[in-house]
């Protein structure tokens, strides 16, 4: 029996908890949920937790405190989902300074919002993480595998070193279209053929395997939610460099017109754990604040 805590940080959408609900019938005999702000009415973290599943990105002062407490009280701490592993979608807010961000969302300057950290961060930025299970949401097979391993006290599964393309069943001919298209822009998309070869941006080439290429095999290009494969740090940069070389015959102005948002395409899930994880404006703003104190 695993004493399981579901720690949901502020930057979360509860999709990871839904992923757990998906597999609950298979793992219920193995787990006892001792803490969760979402499904149980327990407001304090108990001690002696076997496994903490942390979801969501770290964005507030409260998050940092809860996270540190969870680390102290649990034997294993696992980052569940892309937000906890790499910063995820909430991490895209790192292109704004806090004041600008709040104004962008609320229009006015809100008083009720908790104090935000200057930039969103993955869990590993603050505490030691024993294992990362990325995915948006994490693939259910891997989630079961993880819980079984923890319950039977076996070593945790190895992080994948291969990419989505290795698992993808779409046919590849190694002939590339010399143009970039949006998915809706072409009527003649062949859904049994590789998307990238047809000029549709697919992020499978630098995304860790493990999801069995669910999206491409159902007619949707990969968005890169599983993050980089082992040994690669900056998924977005890998995608940028390789997709640029795939479509290098296109004129540069045309390429930037066709891929107008490289940050959103390539760093959709991994900005806070990339090489340049936030805008330097945040640092300038911080120096100004420190100067005025």
């Amino acid at each position: 029996m695993i004493r399981l805590a579901l720690v949901s940080l502020s930057g979360y959408c509860s999709g990871c908890e839904v992923a757990l609900a998906d597999v609950i019938s298979e793992v219920l005999p193995r787990i006892e949920i001792v803490y969760s702000t979402l499904i149980a009415d327990i407001d304090k973290l108990p001690s002696n937790i076997d496994l903490s599943l942390v979801s969501g990105a770290v964005r507030t002062k409260h998050d940092i405190e809860v996270l540190r407490e969870a680390r102290n009280k649990s034997k294993l701490l696992v980052a569940l989902g892309s937000c906890a592993s790499f910063g995820g979608i909430p991490g895209l807010a790192n292109v704004y300074v806090v004041a600008e961000l709040l104004r962008e969302i609320y229009g006015t300057y809100p008083r009720e919002v908790p104090k935000l950290t200057r930039a969103a961060a993955p869990v590993s930025e603050y505490v030691q993480v024993d294992y990362r299970l990325p995915g948006c949401p994490p693939p259910y097979k891997l989630l079961i595998e993880l819980l079984v391993c923890v319950d039977e006290k076996k070593p945790l599964p190895k992080p994948p070193s291969r990419t989505v393309c290795d698992e993808c069943s779409l046919k590849k001919r190694d002939v590339y279209e010399e143009n970039v298209y949006r998915l809706g822009e072409r009527d003649d998309v062949d859904f049994s053929r590789c998307f990238l070869e047809q000029g549709i941006l697919c992020m499978g080439i630098a995304t860790a395997s493990g999801c069995e290429a669910q999206c491409p095999s159902r007619g949707v290009p990969c968005r890169g939610c599983r993050g980089p494969p082992a040994k690669i740090v900056d998924q977005g940069e890998r995608l940028l460099s390789s997709i640029a070389s795939v479509f290098s015959k296109i004129d540069e102005e045309e390429l930037v017109r066709k891929i107008p948002d490289p940050l959103g395409y390539f760093y959709r899930f991994t900005l806070p754990s990339s090489t340049i994880p936030y805008t330097p404006e945040i640092l300038k703003r911080m120096e100004k604040d420190e100067g005025s104190d």
């Binding site: 507030t60 002062k61 300074v97 806090v98 004041a99 709040l102 300057y109 104090k115 935000l116 950290t117 200057r118 930039a119 969103a120 961060a121 930025e125 603050y126 806070p272 994880p277 936030y278 945040i282 640092l283 703003r285 911080m286 604040d289």
Partner: peptide, 11 residues
């Protein structure tokens, strides 16, 4: 700097 060194913005 590391994100964890940036701290919290007092707003």
């Amino acid at each position: 700097r590391k994100i964890s060194e940036l701290g919290v913005e007092e707003h």
